[in-house]
C-alpha cells in the first residue's frame, strides 16, 4: 500500500460509513438496518487501520481489533432480539413496530 496515499482510505471509509448511515435511515427491515450498522462499524475499522498505518502507530490497529470484538458481541445480542420479535409473529418492518405512540 506504499503507493496509495492515506487520504484515499479515509475517503473510502467515509463513503462506506455514509452508505451504512443512509441505509439505516431508509431501509425498513430490522435485519438489514442491523447489517447497515455493521457496515458503519467496518468503515470505522478501515479508518482506524489506515490512520494507524499513516501515523505509524499500533493504537489504530488495536482499536480496530477492539471494535471487531465488541461488534461480534453486539451481533449476538442484536440477532437474539430480532429473532425474538420475529418469533412473536410480527411483521419485519420497523414502521409497523409502533405499539407505543404518544
Amino acid at each position: 500500500m506504499s503507493g496509495v496515499p492515506a487520504y484515499y482510505f479515509l475517503w473510502l471509509s467515509g463513503v462506506i460509513f455514509t452508505v451504512g448511515a443512509v441505509g439505516v435511515l431508509i431501509r425498513r427491515n430490522p435485519l438489514v438496518i442491523f447489517m447497515c450498522i455493521e457496515l458503519m462499524l467496518n468503515a470505522v475499522n478501515l479508518a482506524f487501520a489506515a490512520m494507524g498505518r499513516y501515523l505509524n502507530s499500533l493504537d489504530g490497529q488495536v482499536f480496530a481489533f477492539l471494535v471487531i470484538t465488541v461488534a461480534a458481541a453486539e451481533v449476538v445480542v442484536g440477532i437474539a432480539i430480532i429473532v425474538q420479535v420475529y418469533r412473536a409473529g410480527r411483521n419485519m418492518d420497523v414502521d409497523e413496530l409502533d405499539l407505543m405512540k404518544s
Binding site: 430490522p30 445480542v77 430480532i82 425474538q84 420479535v85 420497523v94 405499539l99
Partner: peptide, 8 residues
Amino acid sequence: ESALKYLL
C-alpha cells in the same frame, strides 16, 4: 419492541 428500537 423497546429492545429492538434501543438496539438499532
